[in-house]
Design a protein around this nucleic acid. Structure first.
Lengths: 259, 259
DNA sequence: TTCATTAAAATTGTCAACACTTTGGCAATG
DNA sequence: CATTGCCAAAGTGTTGACAATTTTAATGAA
């Protein structure tokens, strides 16, 4: 299982249509019967980690080989991804990683401010000491990751922070919407900001938000959150050209760290 | 095409599994090659019109026969409906019309208040005379439908009003979310309120909201909208038993009015 | 009756094979 | 040299047949 995913084959082989080599390796070694949800999760994660660039073509057979699953399964996954707007599907022309417009990016951020504000308001009205402690612990870990320079981990924890607020607020619809927005945000950032360090959540601001929550100060919490998100949103404007990424490398990499 | 849909066969025939009769009728007369979107739209519309009760079983072959399409297409439609939470799918056990819990109903309404407020705020900042006139026209038609006692039409127009505000606001994400909520609301109402006249938008309040918009009075508009939604939300509490509805009748009916 | 047990029927899930559409290159044409 | 028409290759879309699972019905024992 690890063998497959560590084994080396060039991207050229995929793109030239030379799949025989790959298929062989996967067919023989593939002891991991990825299921639908698992495949979905991995592609989503690749987007979340800024490893899948907007515009990347997602071919059904290529993905099927890569994961060692039937094409039908990939088809279902692509449809689901399309529904959450992570990929765009065009009839007879297949699927590509979505490339949100500047307008869509702004709408997304504007809506995010509204949703996060609602989450804070709901959360502050009901949060208890235990949850506050949990948040404090998360911040601790996040700070640590930043200090150790583990950017990838820090990014993941930073996303988790926002998700955790939503979960604690206890409104399943708000939570779903926030998760939807979070999944789509990396594509906006990649398409219109570039993958800078700057364009990420700052730990400092997360701490300020938790302080305000602890004080039950809705106004401050919302204001800081607003500013926090604006920091990134305000930079959305220009659109550098998009590079076609090497699918195999990206997904392979991720597959290694998984079980 | 109309022939099929007007022709009479009892619900018992479906539920007893005697599909041969139905299939014959549809196979011979079916000149309407419903496509995926059309099938989806009709089922959604049936929910929106309070014609499909929560908990109704949706069998693949039954639907396929009813619409005169392949099972594969129905399968895709059901998946899409499941994604927007209008139906619930359980592996190997098929799909049923969703039956949202009281908790989910409350979350839905709470979120709706947030979204509609954001829409009003955005809209008031940019609305022009032309759009205001359009809203006035819509209200006019809505009032008329109420006065003529055409409840079904009034309900449809009432929903349109909320949708139109979202469209005019110009934030595609907010619009999508509101539409999502609107689609799911009838199920909550049916499951926990019953199909009373009372549990619907009041035209009067829509007029008040438009007045506030015209005055660019965000605070009032949001307050009235809040109250408007609360009126319905506050009643969600008890849950009468659910009747299993006769699918054929409902969808047939709808099919007749369509093109 | 009530509860297991089992067989049959109904329903959902999967897949390989085929059909259809798009893409890209090449040659002929103007 | 640009344009058009054509063909093969690469992709995507569909379907009928079969596999797997759940539901229903029937049977029999306690």
């Amino acid at each position: 299982m690890l063998t497959i995913l560590n084994s080396c084959y060039t991207a050229a082989q995929y793109q030239a249509g030379d799949h025989s080599n790959v298929s062989a390796q996967i067919d023989t070694t593939a002891k991991t019967p990825f299921n639908e949800d698992e495949v979905l999760r991995r592609i989503e994660q690749a987007v979340l980690d800024h490893r899948l660039a907007p515009g990347t073509k997602l071919k059904e057979v290529q993905l099927a080989n890569l994961f060692g699953v039937k094409r039908g399964l990939i088809r279902k996954v692509l449809t689901r991804l399309a529904h959450s707007r992570l990929v765009e599907q065009t009839p007879n022309r297949g699927a590509t990683v979505a490339s949100p417009s500047v307008k869509e990016g702004r709408d997304l951020f504007a809506t995010r401010r509204v949703i996060e504000a609602a989450i804070l308001e709901t959360l502050i009205a009901k949060i208890d000491a235990q949850d506050l402690q949990l948040l404090a612990d998360m911040l601790q870990r996040e700070r640590q990751a930043y200090q150790q320079g583990d950017t990838a981990h820090a990014l993941a924890l930073s996303v988790d922070f926002h998700r955790q607020l939503a979960r604690m607020a206890g409104n399943s619809v708000l939570e779903t919407y926030l998760n939807d927005i979070i999944r789509r945000t990396p594509l906006v950032i990649l398409a219109h900001l570039g993958d800078d360090e700057q364009n990420r959540c700052r730990n400092q601001e997360h701490e300020t938000i938790v302080d305000a929550i602890a004080q039950r100060d809705v106004k401050t919490a919302v204001a800081v959150m607003h500013q926090h998100l604006m920091q990134i949103e305000s930079k959305i404007q220009h659109k550098p050209e998009q590079q076609q990424t090497d699918l195999a490398n990206l997904l392979r990499l991720e597959a290694v760290e998984g079980t």
